[in-house]
C-alpha cells in the first residue's frame, strides 16, 4: 500500500514536470493563440446568451401571432417574426439551448464510449483485437444513411417513452454519440499503449495494483489532453450533425425550434420578404458556434503536440 502511494506520488511529480495539468494546457493554448482567445470569447458569449437570454427576454418561442406575420426588425421583435408570427429572437435563443445541449450531451456520450473502448483495448491485450475490429466496423458504416434510418426507426418509440421533446433529444444525442466515438477510441488506445510501457505504470502493475485502479488513477489523468481535443471536435461535429438532420427535415419536430430547423424553415421561404434574415441568423449562429469551438480545438492541438509547437 505504502509503496503504491509512493509510486503515485512519484508519478504526480513526474506529471507536473512533463505533463502540465489539462487546465494549464488550455490556458497556455489560449494565451498563445489569438484566434482561440477570440473563439473562446465568442463561445462563452453564445453560451451565456443562450443560457441567460430566455430569463431576460421572456417571449414564448412557439406563440403564434397572426397580427404580426413575417415582420422585419422592430422594437417588439428584435429579430423580426417568422411566417406564423413567432418571435425570431425567442426562437433563436431556445434553438440555441437545444443545439448546445445536443452538442454537449452527444460529445460526452461519444467521449465516454470512445475513451472506454480505447482504454480497454489499449490496456487489455486480449480485448484489443475484437474492440479494434468493432471500431473498424463502425468506421466502415455509411453514417448519414444509417443516421436517417435509425431516426426513422426509433423516433416514435422514444417519443412515447420520454415525451415528444425529450424523446427526440435522447434519440439524436444517442445517434450522434454512437456514430462518432471511433476517432476518440483510436487516439485513446494509442496513448494508452504508450503509457502502459512507462515506468510508473509498470511499477504499479508489478506491485499488483488492479487494472481498474491503474486505469482510473494513472492512465486516464494522463490522456486528458487528447480527450479534450476530441471533446471540442465532438461538440462541433454534434452541432453540425444535428442541424444537418433538422435541415433534411428529420431532426426535431417543427414546433420545436432548433437552429437547424429554423434554417430549414427559412430556406423553404427563400425569396420572400424577410426570409433572408430567417436564413442568415440561424445559419450564422451555427457557423459561429462551430467556428469558435474549432478554433479552441485547434489551439489545444497545437499546445499538446510538441511537434507543431512554435519553432
Amino acid at each position: 500500500m505504502a509503496l503504491e502511494k509512493a509510486a503515485t506520488a512519484a508519478q504526480s511529480i513526474q506529471d507536473a514536470r512533463e505533463n502540465p495539468s489539462p487546465w494549464m494546457i488550455v490556458w497556455i493554448a489560449l494565451k498563445n493563440h489569438k484566434g482561440a482567445l477570440v473563439g473562446a470569447g465568442v463561445f462563452t458569449f453564445i453560451v451565456l446568451v443562450v443560457l441567460i437570454g430566455p430569463f431576460i427576454y421572456t417571449v414564448d418561442p412557439i406563440l403564434t401571432d397572426s397580427s404580426a406575420l413575417s415582420q422585419g426588425i422592430s422594437w417588439n421583435h428584435p429579430l423580426g417574426t417568422d411566417n406564423l408570427g413567432r418571435d425570431m429572437l425567442a426562437r433563436m435563443l431556445s434553438g440555441g439551448r437545444i443545439a448546445l445541449a445536443v452538442g454537449f450531451a452527444a460529445m460526452l456520450l461519444s467521449l465516454f464510449v470512445g475513451t472506454a473502448i480505447g482504454v480497454i483495448a489499449g490496456y487489455y491485450k486480449r480485448l484489443d483485437g475484437p474492440l479494434m475490429r468493432l471500431t473498424d466496423l463502425f468506421l466502415a458504416l455509411p453514417l448519414l444513411p444509417l443516421l436517417l434510418v435509425i431516426i426513422m426507426l426509433f423516433r416514435e418509440t422514444l417519443r412515447s417513452a420520454f415525451g415528444p421533446e425529450m424523446g427526440i433529444f435522447f434519440l439524436i444525442v444517442f445517434v450522434i454519440g454512437i456514430t462518432s466515438w471511433m476517432q476518440t477510441a483510436r487516439i485513446v488506445r494509442g496513448e494508452t499503449l504508450a503509457l502502459k510501457e512507462r515506468e510508473f505504470v509498470l511499477a504499479a502493475t508489478s506491485m499488483g495494483t488492479s487494472g481498474w485502479h491503474i486505469i482510473t488513477s494513472h492512465i486516464l489523468p494522463n490522456i486528458l489532453s487528447p480527450i479534450m481535443v476530441s471533446a471540442t471536435l465532438g461538440i462541433a461535429n454534434a452541432i453540425i450533425t444535428e442541424s444537418t438532420l433538422s435541415f433534411l427535415g428529420l431532426g426535431f419536430p417543427p414546433d420545436f425550434p432548433t437552429w437547424g430547423r429554423l434554417l430549414f424553415d427559412g430556406a423553404s421561404q427563400i425569396g420572400t420578404e424577410g426570409s433572408t434574415a430567417r436564413v442568415i441568423w440561424p445559419g450564422l449562429a451555427i457557423s459561429l458556434t462551430v467556428l469558435s469551438v474549432n478554433y479552441i480545438g485547434d489551439a489545444l492541438r497545437d499546445a499538446i503536440d510538441p511537434r507543431v509547437r512554435n519553432k
Binding site: 453540425i240 444537418t244 435541415f247 434554417l263 430556406a267 427563400i270 445559419g283 451555427i286 457557423s287 485547434d298
Partner: peptide
C-alpha cells in the same frame, strides 16, 4: 481563418447563401 470557416460552416448554409 478561411479554412476554419470552410469546415465550420455547414454546406447547406453556404449553398443557400450562394443561391441567394
Amino acid at each position: 481563418f478561411i479554412s476554419m470557416v470552410g469546415f465550420s460552416v455547414p454546406t447547406f448554409f453556404t449553398g443557400l447563401v450562394m443561391i441567394l
